[in-house]
Amino acid sequence: MQASRARANRALAARLVLMAAGSFAFGFALVPLYDVFCELTGIGSRERLSRAADTADLTVDSSRTVVVEFTASVPAGGHFRFAPMVASMEVQPGRLYEAHYLARNLADHSTTAHAVPSVAPARAMRHFRKTECFCFTPQHFAGDEERELAVRFTVDRELPAGIDRLTLSYAFYDSERVAGGTTG
């Protein structure tokens, strides 16, 4: 009786250890799994805004125009002047366009900034593709330096019919203050 109980306990212990190990491994497997999930569902299109999109198929849809507005913010703690050079553009889906922002480092010492893009309405995000953007890489500024920053984009043809206007917004962050934590 004791022996069979000991055996049963060992078997149970082995199964439990396997379950624990399996759960741990599942945690690691989640990293690639999330990428798959996001591709499938379109959730996480925000991340794609910060990466260059491929624009292999660029046929223009001249049957519709969409207004793309440009806006900018410098959240708390940033010492920049940052604004779009043009407020909006009428675009045709499928065609490549270029827009410019003007940024000036208001501090007298050099600093690095980076821009975080955001698009409204949210369901337009996955259809807004940037081939080049100042938001892909950190931007270095000398003290008091001002320069133009460019973004090249296209709105793809699959943009839902119910969207006639979308807004591209950048939040311009001073990299030194990127460290999450108490502000100020």
Binding site: R46, P75, V116, V178, G181
Partner: peptide, 17 residues
């Protein structure tokens, strides 16, 4: 970790939300 160790889980500046 966002508070003490400069992670950006919830900070847009670092790619979080």
């Amino acid at each position: 970790t966002d508070y003490f160790f400069a992670t950006s889980f919830f900070n847009a500046a670092g790619g979080g939300d």
